[in-house]
Amino acid sequence: MVNLNGSLLTEANSKLTVNNRGYNYGDALFETLKVVNGKIFFWEDHYFRLMSSMRILRMDIPMNFTMEFLEAQILKTLEANNLLQAAARVRLNVDRGVGGKYAPSKDAIVQYNISVEPHDNPFYTINTDAKYIVDLYKDYFVAPGLLSGLKSNNKAIQVIGSIYAKENDFENCLILNTNKSVIEALNGNLFLVKDGNIKTPPLEDGCLKGVMRKQILEILSKDVNITIEEASISPFELQKADELFITNVIKGIVSITKYRKKQFGNDFAQSLVKKLNAKLRLL
Rank of each mutant, 00 (worst) to 15 (best):
M1N: 06
N5Q: 09
T10Y: 05
A12L: 13
N13A: 15
N13V: 10
N13L: 11
R21P: 12
R21V: 14
R21F: 08
D27E: 05
A28T: 06
L29C: 06
F30Q: 05
E31A: 09
K34M: 08
K34P: 15
N37M: 04
R49K: 11
L50V: 11
L50N: 11
S52Y: 06
S53D: 12
R55A: 13
I56K: 08
I56H: 10
I56A: 06
I61Q: 06
I61N: 09
P62G: 05
M63Q: 15
M63F: 14
N64Y: 12
M67H: 12
F69H: 14
L70W: 09
E71S: 14
A72Q: 12
Q73F: 08
I74V: 15
K76N: 12
A80L: 04
A80I: 13
L83R: 03
A88C: 11
R89H: 14
V90Q: 03
R91T: 13
R91N: 12
R91H: 09
L92S: 08
G97C: 05
G99S: 06
K101D: 11
P104E: 00
P104G: 02
S105D: 14
K106S: 14
K106W: 10
A108M: 06
A108L: 03
I109M: 03
I109S: 09
I109P: 09
Y112S: 04
S115Y: 12
V116A: 07
E117Y: 07
E117W: 10
H119W: 15
H119A: 11
D120H: 07
N121L: 09
P122W: 01
F123S: 14
Y132S: 09
I133R: 04
V134D: 05
L136Y: 07
L136M: 03
L136F: 07
D139S: 13
F141A: 02
F141Y: 06
V142M: 00
P144M: 02
L147A: 10
G149L: 01
G149V: 06
L150R: 00
V159A: 08
V159Y: 03
V159G: 05
G161Y: 00
G161I: 00
Y164S: 03
Y164T: 08
A165Q: 01
N168F: 03
E171I: 02
N177T: 01
S181M: 04
V182Q: 00
E184V: 04
E184Y: 01
E184R: 00
A185F: 00
L186E: 00
N187D: 11
N189T: 02
K194S: 09
K194T: 09
G196D: 07
T200R: 02
G206Y: 00
L208C: 10
G210S: 04
G210L: 01
M212C: 11
R213L: 10
R213Q: 12
Q215G: 13
Q215P: 13
I219R: 02
S221P: 13
D223P: 13
T227R: 06
I228V: 15
E230I: 08
A231L: 11
S232R: 05
F236Q: 13
E237S: 13
K240C: 13
F245I: 10
T247L: 05
T247H: 03
I250N: 04
K251Y: 13
V254P: 10
S255A: 15
I256L: 04
T257S: 14
Y259N: 06
K261E: 14
Q263N: 14
A269H: 01
Q270L: 12
L272F: 07
L272R: 01
V273S: 07
L280N: 11
R281P: 11
L283F: 12
L283V: 14
